[in-house]
Design a protein around this nucleic acid. Structure first.
Length: 615
RNA sequence: GCGCCUGUAGCUCAGUGGAUAGAGCACUGGCCUCCGGAGCCAGGUGCCGCAGGUUCAAAUCCUGCCAGGCGCGCCA
């Protein structure tokens, strides 16, 4: 197989000529697949040559952006570079584009057609074999196709879910969990070293309420007088906890004084609930490296230590019998209390100590995933980071909006007060972890999400999860059949790829080539939902291809039947199978589809969704 | 009152400086002798909430307004 840049592809990322690399490397986050990079590199060469010949005045050029054009008839790839540099050249964009096109025509051989379109686009048609290195790249890198090193091994602490251990996880937590898991995988794929952490809010008022609630139920069980706390937790799980406690402790608690008994109940309940949360998350396919206890911050004196640190720099002061953090020095709208008049710390005090600890553990980048109702808290937290001497880009807070649960288009009413709500576990039981995750990741995190249980369960093409998973299973089935018939899938390098000329085949290769760029962009934007959209597109392209073209030759029996039927029976159905299915074509298509399957699998893997061999 | 988020096709949502703004669903009608029909094809919709501004270029950036959601605690 011959290809204009097969050898670069084998080395991995295309290198720029050393001569030019010095100015190409700043302000660039090199993205995109090898084909886009190749074209970008050719444009850069052309710009420099044009400059040498006096056609361009500029001494510095931006990294040319090479994209897929919105319409296929405009070409395979396009660039807006002429419009970008038109200003510094003080010439009309069309003229600059024309000049670059002329230069490229003389210097670049693999661009089949270069055209210029208003207001200044450069459009390129590539020789079909330009896409073949993509297939080699996928085969060579396998599970790692699309991964990059832009993170340069930087350590990231990704904190998410972090629900109070006062009850089971609900849908909102599920969305956060799916997002966090996907982000961790995505950032790892981009070369970051990510740790996932769950911050257990096992201190403070909520825990006290939990303890009181369980204790009240315990007393109730034993027919004692009890007072259920105002704002206490009413769910049935509280009674279940009291009963479980009773099974272990029996009447023991009745002998204790109420204060100790309450404390005992609180410890017991929070431990049990944390364990239940861990189980729910494990079943959902979300695991954490660390479970960090808020209470441990109190026990170790970390809170006082962190506040002392700030106080030494006059960032903490006392007023009206309370202790304050000078967050207004760091663009927060006012100062905030960290220690109340009654001597208790506020939750901000714990968060100060917690985030101080995160930074001291050597993480260069902190990401917190929070419910959107906490957005007012963000400036305060940024102030904390800045107070410890770090830049505000050091902490990124991703806000997750609410989930509206539907069943067949009708809203599912939930009342937390009455203890009637659908938990994450309920949803996972009903629709499965894969569907739940995929649905959570189908929308940008800062928009409301409608989650229809009926749709998520449906085994039809209306259900996006199945649409993508089916594509993978369908290919798996194809390879099984090929194997049964003794048809081997050859390595890419040995396949007759030049047989791939159909538009549906080229489209697949183009889509595959865009995967690395997609991953980098999604990672930098912290937006895994882009991957779901990409996968839906890729699956769609596959299904179209698969409907229109055959891969394996008909069985011998079928051929005989066809011959028996005579040549004139094929009317309109013939266009579906009219390719002359040579041995080469079968081989080439198998190789192509193998890479499609790899990318679907990789993409689903980043979402934490399985890629089934059978469905 | 102040702040943040959202406003794009009937519905749910992509698109966040580039060309004629897209997809799925819903609706209608087609397509299985054949590698998985859990699939495919064909039909048409938009003052991109409104009004200004910046730009060669705005759904995208800035300002103001309107609507919805959420915050604004010595609660978490």
């Amino acid at each position: 197989m011959k290809s204009p840049f097969a050898c670069e592809a084998r080395r991995g990322y295309v290198r720029f000529p050393p001569l030019f690399s010095s100015f190409l490397l700043f302000d660039t986050v090199m993205s995109a697949g090898i084909v886009q990079e190749q074209v970008a590199s050719a444009i850069t060469d052309a710009l420099l040559q044009a400059q040498e010949r006096g056609f361009l005045q500029s001494t510095h050029f931006p990294q040319p952006i090479v994209d897929f054009p919105k319409r296929e008839e405009w070409g395979d790839l396009s660039s807006s570079v002429a419009m970008v540099i038109a200003k510094q050249e003080k010439r009309p964009p069309l003229e600059v584009a024309q000049m670059i096109a002329d230069q490229l025509r003389t210097s670049c051989t693999f661009l089949e057609k270069i055209s210029v379109a208003p207001p200044g686009f450069l459009n390129f048609s590539l020789q079909q074999d330009c896409w073949f290195p993509v297939l080699e790249e996928i085969e060579r890198t396998g599970d790692l196709y699309g991964h990059s090193k832009i993170g340069q091994g930087q350590r990231v602490l990704l904190e998410f879910v972090s629900a109070n251990p006062t009850g089971p996880l609900h849908m909102g937590h599920g969305r956060g969990a799916a997002l966090g898991e996907a982000l961790a995988r995505l950032l790892r794929s981009a070369g970051y070293e990510v740790d996932k952490e769950y911050y257990i809010n096992d201190a403070g008022r909520q825990m006290k309420l939990l303890a009181d609630s369980v204790y009240a139920r315990y007393l109730e069980m034993h027919g004692r007088e009890y007072s259920f706390p105002e704002d206490g937790y009413h769910g049935d799980y509280i009674k279940a906890l009291a009963q479980a406690m009773d099974r272990v402790k029996g009447m023991d608690l009745l002998a204790l004084n109420p204060e100790d008994a309450r404390r005992e109940c609180g410890h017991w309940a929070s431990r049990e609930l944390v364990r239940a949360i861990q189980e729910d998350l494990a079943q959902f396919g979300v695991e954490f490296e660390t479970w960090y206890s808020e209470a441990s911050l109190f026990a170790s004196g970390s809170i006082q230590a962190a506040l002392n640190d700030l106080e030494q720099r006059d960032l903490v002061f006392t007023q009206d019998d309370a202790t304050w953090f000078r967050s207004s020095r760091f663009q927060d709208e006012k100062d905030r209390v960290v220690c109340k008049q009654d001597g208790d710390y506020t939750y901000l005090a714990s968060d100060i100590a917690y985030h101080f600890d995160k930074l001291r553990r050597g993480y260069g980048w902190l990401i917190n995933i929070w419910g959107a109702d906490h957005h007012g808290y963000v400036p305060r937290m940024q102030a904390v980071i800045k107070a410890f001497g770090y830049g505000d880009d050091c902490l990124r807070v991703v806000l997750v909006q609410m989930v509206r649960l539907l069943r067949g288009g009708n809203k599912v009413e939930m009342s937390k007060r009455a203890g009637e709500f659908i938990t994450l576990q309920d949803v996972v039981d009903e629709v499965g972890a894969d569907a739940a995750k995929f649905f959570f990741l189908m929308r940008r995190s800062d928009t409301h999400l409608e989650f229809d249980l009926e749709l998520a369960k449906k085994q039809s093409n209306e259900n996006p999860v199945y649409y993508v998973q089916y594509a993978h299973a369908r290919l798996a089935s194809l390879f099984r059949t090929a194997h049964e018939r003794g048809i081997r899938v050859s390595p890419v390098g040995e396949a007759p790829l030049s047989a791939l000329v159909q538009p549906e085949e080229i489209r697949l290769m183009k889509q595959l080539s865009g995967f690395p760029g997609l991953l980098e962009a999604s990672a930098m934007a912290l937006e895994p939902h882009r991957i779901t959209f990409y996968l839906l597109e890729l699956a769609g392209l596959l299904h179209v291809f698969y409907y229109k073209h055959r891969v394996l030759p008909p069985r011998v029996d079928d051929v005989k039947e066809e011959e028996a039927d005579g040549p004139d029976h094929d009317g309109d159905a013939s266009e579906l199978v009219r390719d002359v299915l040579s041995r080469e074509l079968t081989m080439a298509r198998l190789v192509l589809l193998q890479q499609v399957q790899t990318v679907i699998k990789n993409g689903l893997g980043l979402l934490g969704v399985s890629a089934p061999e059978r469905m």
